[in-house]
């Protein structure tokens, strides 16, 4: 990696100032993604601004009124084993426990994941399905964005100069079930080809309300609004699940690359969507245990 100056701000305000003072700098959270880019010299920042000393970026708390607050520097492993996350957003804890591999779960952070904007990861779609807020802070103040406002494009976010993600908030949910399905092209792959995240409220066999998201195969995680509208208020049968999946698959704009062309990705998104819905409504014989 190229030489750089290394800075360790102690507060969000100080970090923000440093970022503005060094526009050629890179912000480092857990470092799992940035280190790869640095080592391959894909990025050559003048400064690396590490957030690791900023206490305000840590911790996981919950209040009945505001829901979960997860510090941006929370490690995936901390999210996975946090009793608060497991109680209030079990699908997030479950996703975090299966993401990547043990080492990366101990090094990567939830905030860093969002800021890198890599579509081939699991947290963004899961957080969008949970209607999470991304809290951005800078010397100028605070902004709160939804995940689909924050993730703007392939490796691009709404972060402005001097802004950092301080926390993720997951508001109290009216949903009572959900699952994040991670679909690998083959069992030996390290990154998801596609993922499907769903939050829903059940009434017997019917779906009262639902949020569905496809990620990893799209430039940014994509809400399946038509599919959601079609599903709401209906009894979920195998046929409905297939209809919902067809609709959902038609709503995404899949990327094409060496890991999978667009039409294959769309097919797999459809399958992941349908199977997950079937599993949630008919747990018998399901491969995926739907935490709720």
């Amino acid at each position: 990696m190229k030489d750089f100056d290394y800075l360790e701000p102690a507060s969000i305000a100080e970090a923000s100032e440093m970022m503005l003072a060094h526009p050629g700098g890179s912000v480092m959270a857990g470092g799992t993604a940035l280190m790869l880019a640095l080592r391959q010299r894909m990025v050559t920042p003048s400064h690396v601004i590490s957030l690791r000393r900023i206490r305000d970026l840590r911790g996981i708390t919950h209040t009945p009124a505001e829901g979960l607050r997860i510090g941006a520097l929370a490690l995936h492993a901390e999210v996975a084993r946090s009793p608060l996350v497991r109680q209030h957003a079990p699908m997030l804890a479950d996703m975090a426990s299966r993401l990547a591999n043990p080492q990366v779960r101990n090094q990567g952070t939830i905030g860093g994941n969002l800021c890198y904007g890599d579509p081939a990861t699991d947290p963004p779609s899961c957080l969008l399905a949970l209607n999470a807020d991304v809290v951005l802070r800078s010397a100028r103040g605070t902004r709160v964005l939804k995940v689909d406002q924050f993730a703007t494009d392939y490796f691009a976010t709404a972060l402005e100069p001097g802004e950092i993600v301080s926390e993720i908030r997951i508001p109290p949910s009216a949903f009572d079930a959900g699952y994040h399905a991670r679909f690998l092209r083959t069992a030996a792959e390290h990154r998801p080809l596609v993922n499907f995240a769903v939050s829903l409220r059940k009434q017997g066999d019917a779906c009262e309300d639902v949020r569905m998201v496809i990620g990893a195969s799209t430039r940014v995680p994509t809400r399946l609004r038509k599919a959601e509208d079609w599903m709401k208020g209906k009894t979920v049968t195998a046929r409905l699940a297939a209809e919902v999946a067809d609709l959902g698959a038609s709503e995404i704009e899949p990327i094409s690359d060496i890991r999978g062309d667009g039409s294959f990705r769309r097919d797999m998104a459809r399958t992941a969507c349908r199977r997950t819905i079937e599993d949630l409504f008919n747990p018998a014989g399901s491969a995926a245990t739907s935490a709720a």
Binding site: A188, E189, H190, I258, R259
Partner: peptide, 13 residues
């Protein structure tokens, strides 16, 4: 690279 040239992992065999 090993992220894209995917050799068998312990849980893929």
């Amino acid at each position: 690279n090993f992220a894209d040239y995917t050799m068998p992992t312990a849980d893929s065999v």
